[in-house]
Simulated scan of single mutants.
Amino acid sequence: MGVTLITIATSVVLTCLSLSAVDGDTIKCNGQNMRIMGPGAPFKSGIDTPEIRNAKCPKEKLLGKQAKLRLAELLREDVKIEDSGERDRWKRPLVWVRMPNGKTAGEILMADGYAVRWQPKYRSAWCE
């Protein structure tokens, strides 16, 4: 008779006394930048939104500003910030912004057309 081990991923819910959108896929919680994710797992699946600061074309910058405004709108709801325990290459915590209905803000941004699904080897095409 074999033993089956099941690993259950857990996340920590963060308390943000101040919460704002930095861009379409980055929030600032208590002064710390955090990268939001979609419904996927860290480094396997996430979201990408257009850049504002390092945009490659005017179209990307405009789309990036729109994505930031939509994320800011979502952050005004009663959201939960769940830390995955992982960090991106810039040392930002990878977090899920969980909406009251259970969806992530990333899922909503994708559904609304402000974000696309990210996966390893993804290359953005905001200027095409």
Rank of each mutant, 00 (worst) to 15 (best):
D48I: 05
I27A: 08
P39E: 08
C29T: 11
Q32W: 05
K44W: 02
N30I: 11
K28C: 13
G24V: 09
G38H: 02
E51K: 14
T49V: 13
M34R: 09
T49Q: 02
M34H: 12
I36R: 02
N30F: 01
F43D: 11
T26N: 07
T26R: 06
K44P: 09
G31M: 10
R35W: 04
G31N: 15
P42V: 01
Q32S: 12
D23K: 08
T49W: 01
T49H: 00
G31E: 13
Q32F: 10
N33M: 09
T26L: 07
G38F: 00
G24S: 09
N33T: 08
D48K: 01
E51I: 15
F43L: 10
M37K: 00
Q32A: 15
T49G: 07
I27G: 12
D23I: 13
P50Y: 00
D48Q: 03
P39W: 06
F43T: 04
I36A: 12
M37W: 00
D48N: 07
I36Q: 06
P39T: 09
G38I: 00
Q32C: 09
E51H: 15
G46N: 05
A41Y: 03
T26D: 13
P50A: 11
C29R: 01
T26W: 15
G40P: 01
D25I: 10
S45W: 13
P42L: 00
I27S: 12
P42E: 02
I27K: 07
A41S: 08
P39Q: 06
